[in-house]
Design a binder for these strands. Structure first.
Length: 423
RNA sequence: GGCCCAUUCGUCUAGUGGCCUAGGACACCGCCCUCUCACGGCGGCGGCACGGGUUCGAAUCCCGUAUGGGCCUCCA
């Protein structure tokens, strides 16, 4: 039997990270078993907003690296086949009419299934309500349409969130009454925020789009998501898509909910960023910058890569780090001008203007002044970058260029002089 | 309220009766490296929700309690 699963995003709004994790498990399972992964779009509404939302969802899935083998429509409003089956149940006495609606008659006894994640789960049928399967206006309800759609689509494994556990016994009873074969059910745990409640905007980014604009790498987010409720062993963290496909098993999905740890994601993204080849790094960075509509000269951006690759864990940290190369800076007004003046003099005739020669010159300066590098470089850094935190000082000076560097050093000296004159 | 599910360091998790004086990772703390910030290296802190069983032996099995979550809609 070949595997067929489905991903069923809600077309209202953007792709939620919790739902994506469920899709990810479906996708990994399908790919590992050489099966099919369908994208099921609910077509309750054909409005333009919904259409745009669906496009947005597809775009986000694609960005993350989750593809699909076909699209099916979940025809909640106009499911002819569902109504036929409901009539059949009615005729067979497995359902009955109730104020214009059709209710499914729960059988006697109990119902159980072997959940691929949680093991055997059993319900007493007497606790299950006779649920409405077709509303009085003729529209099938979700708990009827969903198993029927799975049946029509030939879904072999229903991998979904744990909030569906309670719906499963009724869906199984319906499928049995229809004489259908049952899919394998796998209920995966939810993802919560730090307060133990369902992950929402209050906790941080939740849409795939937000992570994208936050400067995360899709491969890192993919890796992180796979580790939320699943693990390969007791020590493996970094895994490529290929490795995840090879190693994923439903049996190793845990049954307790997980808390989304933004700090760990940041760390993992940093690991991925640091492992990138410089040209790959530049490519991803440039793409991100253009998505953010930041328009800095490409060659300069390229040149900054070796300076910042080790230092940032999200692209969103990049602009503040190198802004001094593209825009004027404003060092603190009370900066001690003496070292800047000495540095300016020392660097004025330096040749060639390269990081190594700049470093040699500035270290000589330290000795001449009897200052420790730590102390002496601080005001220079502030004058050049406007910040206490920056890429390497010598490389920064090289990239900024001699003219602009001397200019900035000189500005601090001149500023101090005019402040003294005022006083 | 009823039914169902869950409960190992702050967080993600390993653990399926002896390998556990419970392992790894993030975070945190300390030290080292060091021009800042990072990276990296070394070390540390820190957990089996609780109570009963079963067993020679339990984080692991059973029962109960507590806590959290889900479902109980002619919502999806």
């Amino acid at each position: 039997m070949s595997v067929r699963v489905r991903m069923a995003p809600s077309p209202t709004g953007f792709l939620h990270i919790g739902g994506v994790r469920t899709f990810l498990f479906n996708w990994l399972f399908a790919r590992q078993h050489d099966g099919e992964c369908l994208l099921r779009i609910e077509n309750t509404d054909t409005g333009r907003e919904v259409a745009e939302s669906v496009e947005q969802i597809k775009e986000s899935l694609t960005w993350l690296g989750i593809d699909w083998d076909g699209e099916v429509a979940f025809q909640l409003d106009s499911a002819g086949r569902a109504r036929e089956l409901a009539q059949q149940l009615l005729a067979e006495g497995r359902a009955y009419e109730d104020e214009g609606a059709i209710r499914f008659r729960q059988p006697a006894g109990s119902v159980a299934w072997d959940d691929a994640v949680r093991g055997r789960i059993e319900f007493q049928n007497e606790h299950l309500p006779d649920l409405v399967i077709v509303r009085s206006d003729g529209r099938p309800t979700y708990n009827f349409a969903s198993p029927v759609e799975d049946l029509i689509d030939g879904i072999t494994h229903v991998i979904r969130g744990e909030d569906h556990v309670s719906n499963t016994p009724s869906q199984i009873n319906i499928l049995r009454a229809l004489g259908a074969e049952l899919p394998v059910y796998a209920h995966v745990p939810n993802i919560n925020g730090a307060d133990g409640r369902k992950l929402s905007k209050r906790h941080g980014a939740v849409s795939i789009d937000a992570f994208r604009s936050g400067g995360y790498l899709p491969s890192a987010l993919f890796n992180f998501l796979a580790l939320l409720g699943w693990s390969f062993d007791d020590k493996t963290t970094i895994m490529s898509r290929r490795e995840l496909v090879d190693r994923f098993t439903l049996a190793r999905v845990v049954s307790s909910p997980a808390t989304f740890d933004y700090e760990k994601l940041d760390w993992l993204n940093g690991v991925y960023l640091r492992n990138l080849q410089p040209d790959e790094y530049a490519h991803f960075l440039l793409t991100w910058l253009s998505e953010q509509q930041i328009d800095w000269p490409r060659t300069t951006v390229d040149a900054t890569v070796p300076l910042i690759q080790e230092k940032i864990e999200r692209f969103s940290q990049y602009p503040d780090f190198v802004r001094f190369l593209f825009e004027p800076v404003t060092p603190p007004a009370d900066l001690d001008p003496r070292i800047c003046a000495a540095a300016r003099e020392k660097l004025a005739e330096l040749d060639p203007w390269e990081a190594v020669t700049i470093e040699r010159a500035l270290r000589e300066l330290c000795e001449e002044l009897g200052e420790k590098p730590r102390q002496a470089f601080a005001p220079i850094r502030l004058a050049i970058t406007g910040s206490k935190v920056s890429p390497g000082l010598f490389e920064s000076l090289e990239l900024l260029g001699r003219d602009e560097s001397l200019e900035r050093l000189g500005a601090v000296v001149a500023g101090a002089a005019s402040a003294a004159a005022d006083a």
